[in-house]
Design a protein around this nucleic acid. Sequence first.
DNA 1: ACATGCGGGACGTCCCGTTTAT
DNA 2: ATAAACGGGACGTCCCGCATGT
Lengths: 188, 188, 188, 188
Amino acid sequence: MAAANSKQHRRALIQTTIRLLRKQGYAATGLSEILKISKAPKGSLYYYFPGGKEELAATAVTAASKTVLETLEKLEHTTSSASDFISRYCTLLIGWMELSNYAEGCPISTTLLEMVPQSDLINKAGQNGFASWKSVFIRIFERDGMKAQEALEKATFLMAAIQGALLLSRVEQSSSPLKGIGNQKSFF
Amino acid sequence: MAAANSKQHRRALIQTTIRLLRKQGYAATGLSEILKISKAPKGSLYYYFPGGKEELAATAVTAASKTVLETLEKLEHTTSSASDFISRYCTLLIGWMELSNYAEGCPISTTLLEMVPQSDLINKAGQNGFASWKSVFIRIFERDGMKAQEALEKATFLMAAIQGALLLSRVEQSSSPLKGIGNQKSFF
Amino acid sequence: MAAANSKQHRRALIQTTIRLLRKQGYAATGLSEILKISKAPKGSLYYYFPGGKEELAATAVTAASKTVLETLEKLEHTTSSASDFISRYCTLLIGWMELSNYAEGCPISTTLLEMVPQSDLINKAGQNGFASWKSVFIRIFERDGMKAQEALEKATFLMAAIQGALLLSRVEQSSSPLKGIGNQKSFF
Amino acid sequence: MAAANSKQHRRALIQTTIRLLRKQGYAATGLSEILKISKAPKGSLYYYFPGGKEELAATAVTAASKTVLETLEKLEHTTSSASDFISRYCTLLIGWMELSNYAEGCPISTTLLEMVPQSDLINKAGQNGFASWKSVFIRIFERDGMKAQEALEKATFLMAAIQGALLLSRVEQSSSPLKGIGNQKSFF
DNA sequence: ACATGCGGGACGTCCCGTTTAT
DNA sequence: ATAAACGGGACGTCCCGCATGT
């Protein structure tokens, strides 16, 4: 029954791509590797993503961003202060990093660093993703009574610190950079 | 006389690799591309770097790290407070980012994100590089009278913030994340 | 109402195929290219031509041959001598070649050279086409009072000369081979 | 011993390509097919022909042209009149066509028809080949006492007739078009 | 009758990173 | 210290089934 798993291949393709991009980045991830793991036929890939690897990757970046966004929003609704939000988010990240042996950090940053100068499509996807996360951060700070301008600055700063900590954490194989953010009183 | 430009080829190879890794990362950088730009003969590459691409890249990472370290040390000696150091460093980074149209951020982070799970050699080179930079940051904070433990934490945090800001800056094509760090009073 | 442009897609498919085969030959002409240009849906192709690409090409060869035949017959009826016929035909061909910048010669010879050893269908279509043209040539010579046997030989020779001249004309990007035939007194 | 068959692979590649181009044309001939038959490693192809398929094909066209040229020159030196030359050449061609079951005509015309509008390299190779053959034809006619201008015209005409006859011969699976040229008194 | 969505795998070409032999 | 030669795999995309509409 072909219709049954109609868009199943498409989904599998995207999910597999998200995983591989997170681990290896764009260039190191072969289409054939994606195909093998996702068990999707090559023809489907070309059918769903006529733009080939680039389009698939951009779609994966968008999808991964959305997943992160959902986590952030859930956290937004289950915490009451920015301080609480930050420390709980860091705890979450630390858990993931340790679980994956510091192999899986931000799902999109590797790909973005590689591809921003080379693919508008992926660049756009990344910008949108980052912007959507930042919106949550901004709301968090505003909820604490901060003014718009200051909240924006703090949010940007927080995003940078987290991204950087994930990067360092990966390279140093240690969660201490992330711990540093959780403890930091710097944001208030 | 081949001996004249004896190690010239080696140098050219490394410098070219640094440039390309910074822009495109590891996987996207072809050996043939390096060869063409550096004008080194193909045989030389394997003569100087028997470990092939991986060894060349690790060497490039180390060399690039050293260049950054020298910049940091120079800054260390021409500033008197951590606050001054940070703001001047950010100004420097902003200048470079704007000059390169946000294309050239940290010279090694892209490569590290790609290769840490796959190459011990490169991973080590990156860890050493990061550690050497961090040492400077620690000294900066200690010079301000901070205690060792606190200086370490601040230094780690600062590194994360800068790395993250460079990343965001590249993706968003804007220097505002870097500006945020310069203005931030968060480190004190 | 689908029936309105019922066979329109079929026609478009054939006409597009004729054009592409003339320019690029069989193998270089992709089904997807034909589909895109003709704006016919993929399903239609296999509905009208269950034999796929081969059948479509054979149909196109037949159709193109018929168009040429009609030109020849018109010329047959508007000229009175073989000599006149030949020179007017060459003038016609020269005009087309120059107009298309020597890109469009015989509409079927490229395809035939490629496919004769590989497709009976296309081979047959080509043989029929050539035979139909030759009939006109024969009649032309007989009209001049030539005997059947001699007319056949002259017709074959004339066909060869024209085909060869079109080929040379294409390669040399010059109409001089065709001019040579027009001036030739060789056929009498 | 790799050095022994140093350029052997190169030679094999070219010879195989000549054969396949003659039979199937350019587009239908796959690089992998060439590789398999010639038993040359894939890397060698790229090494000897950095321009890929196009360069290989152009080289093959040139080589094939030269072989034909040598045949023509040998014939030039073993015949005394143009008439003799033509009839002996046609006899030769007829023999080859019948031997190969009308599968192998002019070694380069199929490729040229396909590629002239698409590859300058191949176009040039073909033009040079054709020109070199024509030179022989011209000398043949001049040797008979013909004036330069007339010899040129006759030579062009003869080339066209032969090329066309080979084409027809292939399509009609019969050597009669070639026989027609041999018998023809048209050239004098 | 006609059209389409979706799927399937085979190659095609390019080029990469690497040894072997000077 | 370098040239010559190698083999593997990347990505693209091609031509073609079967389902399913309408």
